[in-house]
Simulated assay, not measured.
Amino acid sequence: MNKKIDNEMIERALKGSLEDKDTIVELLEPLIKSSISRYYYRAHLYDDLMQDGKLEILKCFKNFDPSQGVYFLGYVKTMLRYYYLNRNRDKECFSLDETNEEGLCQLELLESDENIEEDYIESETNDELKAAMAVLTEIEKSVIVDFYYNNLSLHEIADKRGIKYRTAVNNKTRAIYKLKTHFEEINFKFEW
């Protein structure tokens, strides 16, 4: 559908044109979807929330007062936002001790953000990296730290250190080569 909502269509819909109301509701489906995802996303209620959003738009045709100096589409957007925010107040509550259809406790199904194995590997990698930094000169260390940890560009590093851009590039290249060589010597698997 390549139709667009224009003022004449809105005026006809406000005067009662069912065809224009249907067209506007259909064209506003992306706004409904956006409002759901922004203010009240519940995947299992998605179809119901879409229908509720369409009903809310139809209520807007009934309740809109043009004398207030508000643009109709802005009014609809605001009403959808408030509708879904108010629905959010009535959140579903359940106990984590309840079991699901498969007999598993909800508490056991919760995922943890903590990954002990990854944390250990990252810690070990960081320790190896810190030890490897000892093979670098002070300027090479500072360039690596500024580039990778402080997210400075090589131009910014050169300006900060009062060196030429090419010198900063050479220090970074030399430092990476030394670190790579060090890791190869100790047989440490490190993804570059």
Rank of each mutant, 00 (worst) to 15 (best):
N2P: 02
N2C: 03
K3R: 14
N7R: 12
A13D: 11
L14W: 07
K15G: 07
K15L: 15
G16R: 00
G16P: 04
S17I: 00
S17A: 13
L18T: 14
E19W: 03
K21M: 12
D22R: 04
V25S: 00
V25T: 09
K33C: 12
I36G: 02
I36K: 02
Y40C: 07
L45A: 14
Y46R: 09
D47R: 05
D47W: 01
D48I: 01
L49S: 14
K54C: 08
L55N: 11
I57P: 00
C60H: 09
C60P: 07
K62R: 15
K62G: 03
F64S: 00
S67C: 05
Q68V: 04
V70W: 02
V70A: 09
F72E: 04
L73G: 05
G74Q: 08
K77F: 05
M79Y: 01
L80S: 01
R81L: 00
R81G: 00
R81N: 00
N86K: 14
D90T: 07
K91Y: 06
L96E: 07
T99V: 15
N100Q: 09
E101T: 11
L104N: 12
Q106Y: 15
L110S: 06
L110V: 13
L110Q: 09
S112A: 06
D113Y: 09
E114H: 05
I116E: 11
I116G: 01
E117Y: 10
E117I: 15
E118R: 10
D119L: 09
I121N: 02
E124Q: 10
T125Y: 03
D127Y: 07
L129N: 03
K130A: 10
A132T: 05
V135T: 09
L136G: 02
E140F: 05
E140M: 04
S142M: 13
Y148T: 03
Y148K: 06
S153W: 01
A158R: 11
A158T: 14
K160R: 15
I163M: 10
K164W: 07
Y165F: 09
Y165V: 02
R166S: 12
T167Q: 03
A168P: 07
N171H: 15
N171L: 07
K172F: 04
R174A: 15
A175D: 03
I176D: 06
I176C: 12
K178I: 06
K178T: 04
L179S: 04
K180E: 05
E185F: 09
I186G: 01
F190W: 03
F190A: 00
